[in-house]
Design a protein around this nucleic acid. Sequence first.
DNA 1: CTTACCGTTGGTACT
DNA 2: AAGTACCAACGGTAA
Length: 633
Amino acid sequence: MGKPRVIYWFRTDLRLHDSPALKAALDLEPSAFWPVFTWDPHYVYRVKVGVNRWQYLLDCQNDLSSSIRKRNPKSKLFVLREAPQTLFPKLFKAWNVTHLVFEKDTDSYARERDSVIIDLAKKAGVEIITRYGRTLWDSDDVVAKNGGKPTMSITQLQAAGHKVGSIPRPIPAPDHLPDPGEMPVNFDQDQPDPEPDLNASHRIKEEKAYHNIAGPKDNFAVATLEELGFPTATTPHRGGETLALKTLDKIIADAEYTATFQKPKTSPTAFAPQSTTLLSPCLHFGALSPRLFYWRVQDVVDGYGKGASKPPESLTGQLFFRDMYFAAQAAVGAPFGRAVGNAHARFIPWHLPTTTKGDGRYHVDSSQAETWVRHWAAGTTGFPFVDALMRQLRAEGWIHHLGRHMLACFLTRGGCYVHWERGADVFEELLLDHEPACNAGNWQWLSCAAFYHQYFRCYSPVTFGQKWDRNGDYVRRWVPELERLDAKFIYEPWKASQAALDKAGVVIRGDGEEGGESEGNKKTYPEPMFDFGERRKVCIAAMKTAYSIGLYGDDERVKDGTWRALFEKAGETEMEGVDGSENDDDGAHADDAEYEAHGSVRGSSSKHSRGKNDSAANKTGPMDRHVKKQKTQ
DNA sequence: CTTACCGTTGGTACT
DNA sequence: AAGTACCAACGGTAA
């Protein structure tokens, strides 16, 4: 029995401070200690990760690696390019490993993957040690204290958290790390199947992610965007533990901001600087510990006395929401990320639902909805506030939480009546801070499928922006076509007089698909893609029908399609399978037309450039005709 | 059982 | 400018 030879497996905990798992690994007093990151093909190919988020991940890895090196010049973050499921059994042997240590992860894919790894380690006689530090409280403990049920309200989370116990105080970063052992690669590399590559559309060059297990220079280096075939990232936001801690210091130094923070009063239109902390991407990658964040803030609040804000509005309250979604997902499992099969989300027959085949595709039941979602994703809806938000999201990978509300409400229950899964797909790709539990949870919240139910409260793309930004500076920043338009019309340019438009040098015309950005000296901006007031009414009425029918995602009638009869009986026409297009009965639909499309909205980074054949927009399925016949009977 | 009130972040019309 | 009542009316929670 030699001394412990330990692999510390970094995943979504790219930091050295406050890591219970890292502490457990170092407490073994290893004779060999390898800080390792494995490239999971699931992340590289099977989930949508935009270029900006890749950049942020690589930032975090580079910073971590240099922090490790500072503590031991012989060490660094060793990046191995192979799926952990095939890599670890070989590594255990080749490096003579005795322990594998990592932070527990309650995401559904991670749970599945980690249980495989734990079995493999058992077989190899390698001891597994895990600890938890991803949320304030261990999500499984929260679920247990919530009666085994998902936490569906912030009250439940707070009550269950209270029962779990006090939030652990942060653990300082180690000031020294043990030497790594020898690292022979005397085994073959298992190559993953790159198909389907959900990120193929972003790549501008050959992707070389798995060309060599230790990277192109054979030195286990952190990858570059170029090796992945990606173009340069556009986000100004940079990642890494060092930066995260600096940002946190700056926030904490402002005691009044920290102690009196009220989320609903922070502005979604503030930019340079934004009104919130922008720490969410650091939390996602684990570059910042939520418990460190919590206690640094709480200590300020405790010292501030009267006038401090309280959860859920306060800064610490924001972390509670994160814990709530994590615990909800921990309880529900994989169905939490979907509608069908999710017993805790209402069934609402929105357009463009994901197919039940599990292939990531969705049902194009309405060409009109498909057109709307494309405009939504590209930032060409003709509603300036909506378009500004989407353009900032595409460029920077981050928008304010209330901006996300606006976009989500508009796409689902307050505008397009498109399924929240379509919006979640786009956010998953674009958000730097995309967190599976929080994304799915927030989309369910905003669409009133779960967590939130007041569907009659709708965000107006005109009024909501005006409430925060009378002059429309935010819109001018992101929709430069309207830069010079009078503030009176900046949120609703279709109402502007010809004189006002002439003065601003803009023409309101078309649907943004012509590709022409300028006409002479004038710029063009699209007409609004629908009458918002009308759509709002239609959506609220349809939500009322869906609520009164009261089905949930796990209902048999949802799975077998008999839900439709219930909605037809209720006289509902705004629903999946009914195409609202005015001009689509021109005989253009082939009988065997495909009615599925890839589960991603290809928002082109070059705006206004989407081709007409880019999607299944002009194809409809048999269901449409079926329903249309019924309508005209 | 009923009832009243609350729920992180709506919109409108009024004072 | 900021506060209030109302719109039409949801589910969860506590009394």
